[in-house]
Design a protein around this nucleic acid. Structure first.
Length: 474
RNA sequence: CGGGGUGUGGCGCAGUUGGUAGCGCGCGACGUUUGGGACGUCGAUGCCGCAGGUUCGAAUCCUGUCACUCCGACCA
């Protein structure tokens, strides 16, 4: 008997920890907050990288690599930025045997390094735009950590772009948020709320921060990715200038945007169930697993191997498990690991020139003819994707409530996990007050699509400027 | 960073008033099984988180430290 995972309704946090361990996604290391990506977990990241990288390149971005060390003097050039990040930096003070004359931060993010470089390579409007992206890891000395969701070191991509005009940079900021939104929906099967962060919640040094906010199964939000418009603040701090078309010296306008391995946490907590992980087909390391039944019987393994070759030739990521574990054990194992489609092939199927397909989401068994195997498997993968989207959508809708008064807001915050939609006056004091009174509910974003719920702020009663989506977050 | 919990074989755990470590699962071999987590026989695996201390003797008592976990605070 394999240990059961804790039911998500009993203890969601424990369920999450059980799943990441038992699906063999990660292991703990001896350094606080640093995790080991095991092959299956890293394969998910590789698929995410491949998919996103193609999307970035389709809009003209080029990959670069910056150093992992940032001299303190460089990090501190932009005031808001250093205030935001200095508290969670790891510092290198010794090189070999010698104490360094200037300490080096292990990058918590690379804006400053990109800026230093941009200063050297941007001279003229002809050098713009610069559309760069970097895949790397960053370090932030977090106080509490959780696998994938918040780790001291994490893998991510950070895009950094420089533009001739404000308009162009603002367009880029929103374009990349849309890339994230599409990726979440099309590849991760996660429908998410997108919008703008309030000034209180925006990135250190940014003029505007946009965010994608998926809701986890238990109603808690996760900041799933951000895209920032910097204006020319960093350009001025780093003295990055170019000669414009009008022959005047100008400052370029900048953006940055990033998503991280935290997305793997989002996948787990959005789609998983009490049997374990459920992976969206687009990024699943194994899209279909073939389980031979009574594999000792003549011809079964040959047939299974034949089906494997066919599915592989059809471009699917497929695995044949011919180990001598019992088939029941295999069923449970691949459910735990979230493989979207299971294919069973045994003597009875062979007599009928058929096999059995089982959906990880519904566990529906479908007997299909081997004649159109490829089509059937692809159809079931598409169906799994659609069902995951629909389920996540339904969960989010059920766990989103509107509040018209402060009493109503506090009542929902206390009794109904999930998002709260409510009007806001624009004052950070109201955000602080609601957070205090609810014990942690914060503004997620001002969504791009707002409804007019009332004329006044849910907190102070002054005229409302925006509808805000509120919620607790990981 | 504060409060609680936990560190014993790969995993889950037991270990009495201190006497030198055990169970289940898993792992290996062989045989029987095989359409939802199979069974039998034999076998291997321990710096008792780490470092000090007390003691003739420490998994056990004391001090320190590290990690994990939960709840807060903090956190683009």
């Amino acid at each position: 008997m394999v240990e059961q995972i804790t039911s998500m309704d009993v203890d969601f946090a424990q369920w999450y920890t059980d799943v990441v361990k038992k699906a063999e996604l990660m292991d703990y290391s001896s350094v606080k907050g640093c995790m080991i990506f095991r092959p299956y977990g890293y394969a998910i990241w590789e698929n995410i990288q491949r998919d996103l990288d193609a999307r970035f390149k389709a809009c003209g971005h080029e990959n670069v690599y910056m150093p992992m060390f940032i001299p303190e003097s460089l990090l501190t050039k932009e005031k808001d930025h250093v205030e935001g990040f200095a508290p969670e930096c790891a510092w290198v003070t010794v090189g070999g045997e010698n104490k360094l004359t200037e300490r080096l931060a292990v990058r918590p993010t690379s804006e400053t390094l990109f800026c230093e470089h941009f200063r050297n390579v941007i001279q003229s409007y002809r050098d713009l735009p610069k559309l760069y992206n970097q895949w790397c890891s960053v370090v932030r000395w977090e106080k509490t950590t959780r696998p994938f969701l918040r780790t001291s070191e994490f893998l991510w991509q950070e895009g950094h772009t420089m533009h001739e005009t404000e308009e162009e940079a603002r367009e880029e900021t929103l374009r990349m948020l849309k890339v994230y939104e599409d990726f979440y929906l099309e590849s991760l099967a996660i429908p998410a709320v997108t919008g703008q962060k309030t000034p209180k919640e925006k990135f250190a040094g940014a003029e505007a921060t946009y965010t994608i906010e998926p809701m986890m199964h238990n109603g808690v939000a996760l900041q799933g990715g951000t895209s920032h418009y910097f204006g020319d603040g960093f350009a001025k701090a780093f003295d990055i200038t170019f000669t414009g078309r009008d022959n005047q010296v100008r400052y370029p306008h900048q953006t940055s945007w990033g998503v991280s391995t935290r997305m793997i946490g989002a996948i787990i907590m959005t789609h998983g169930d009490d049997s374990g992980l459920i992976l969206p087909p687009a990024i699943a390391p194994i899209q279909a697993v073939i389980i031979p039944i009574a594999q000792h019987k003549e011809g079964v393994l040959d047939k299974a191997g034949e089906l494997y070759d066919r599915l592989k030739a059809a471009g699917l990521r497929v695995k044949l498990d011919d180990s001598d574990q019992s088939s029941g054990w295999k069923f449970s194992q691949y459910e735990m690991k979230g493989v979207p489609v299971r294919l069973e092939i045994g003597p009875k199927d062979m007599e009928n020139n058929s096999c059995v397909l089982v959906s990880r989401v519904t566990r529906e068994k479908k007997f299909v003819s081997l004649d159109n195997l490829e089509t059937e498997v692809k159809a079931m993968l598409a169906q799994v994707h659609d069902e995951l989207v629909a389920r996540a959508q339904k969960n989010r809708e059920e766990k989103t409530n509107d509040a018209h008064t402060r009493e109503e807001f506090l009542d929902i915050a206390e009794n109904k996990p999930g998002f709260i939609r409510a009007m806001w006056c624009g004052d950070a004091a109201c955000e602080d007050q609601l957070k205090d009174e609810t014990g942690g509910v914060k503004s997620r974003c001002i969504p791009f699509v707002e409804d007019h719920l009332s004329d006044v702020c849910v907190c102070c009663g002054k005229p409302a400027k925006h509808m805000v989506v509120w919620g607790r977050q990981y």
